[in-house]
Amino acid sequence: MANNFNLEFEKPIVELEKKIEELSMLALDGLDIAADVSALEGRVEQMRADIFSGLSRWQTAQVARHINRPFTLDYINHMFTDFTELHGDRNFGDDHAIVGGLARFNDQPVMVIGHQKGRDTKEKVYRNFGMPNPEGYRKALRLMQMAEQFKLPVITFVDTPGAYPGIGAEERGQAEAIARNLREMASLRTPIIVCITGEGGSGGALAIAVGDRILMLEHSVYAVISPEGCAAILWSDGTKGEQAAEALKPTAQDIIKLGVIDEIVKEPIGGAHRDHEATARNMKEAIARNLAELSKLSEEELVEGRYNKFRAMTRCLE
């Protein structure tokens, strides 16, 4: 993957990498600098590990939105075989911000569903920047109910800034579509594994994120509102995202303490955007392990366990 987009805090790494490249050019002139180059390379790796192990919440939010971060179709490519995409909500249209279909996971037939973002401008527009309309959620629900009918596990990938806030979305019942998914997913009689892979943007994310196991990539975020949105309301200043990110505590490391997710999935050093294959490998291992555990449960145990899981998500004083 061409790393043609760098985040502010990645700049020291990029500069060091440039120096190594320049040095390597000298080697072409016959200078013996192999030892220097390898020492510098070691330093780069160390620097990368240091920077990414100490990301602030605001920096994590930026990594979660990195344009080269793997998207749902990338995971499908790396982790599944025989993917057949299925389209449409049977009511109004096909939403390109959510993809889904039948596929095999380690040979087992499953239903895979996820938000889909675009990388170049044309694809970003085509995918509506990963912000679904009601049709997207209704397509997702249709596919989940199909999975239930044919006793296939459901695996979802969550990565959206949020549900689309447009006139058409309101007219066609954005709120109803999300709400219905929450209720129906709660009682779906088949295993559901949710992978938060990038931005978990509020209700637009949750609408495909009610499951038996919630896995979350190391540098992804999940919150009730985006840092910018929160800043615009509480600080009356949309540029105070950094403070809002600290207040919202949206990282995997924050959230696991509240019992909202089950497991943090490691990313390669330097973030998922540096190595799609390795990221997918880690995610695949986690999904396979959880799926094996869930497949031992009866439908009743699954649904009851899922109810109790969300039922316990409360912090209050009595």
């Binding site: 929450l182 709660a186 949750l206 919150a223 009730v224 509102i225 909202v260 912090r315």
Partner: peptide
């Protein structure tokens, strides 16, 4: 907003 992710989970 002040309860961030746990507010969201109340919807589910």
């Amino acid at each position: 907003m002040q309860e961030s992710i746990l507010s969201l989970m109340q919807m589910a």
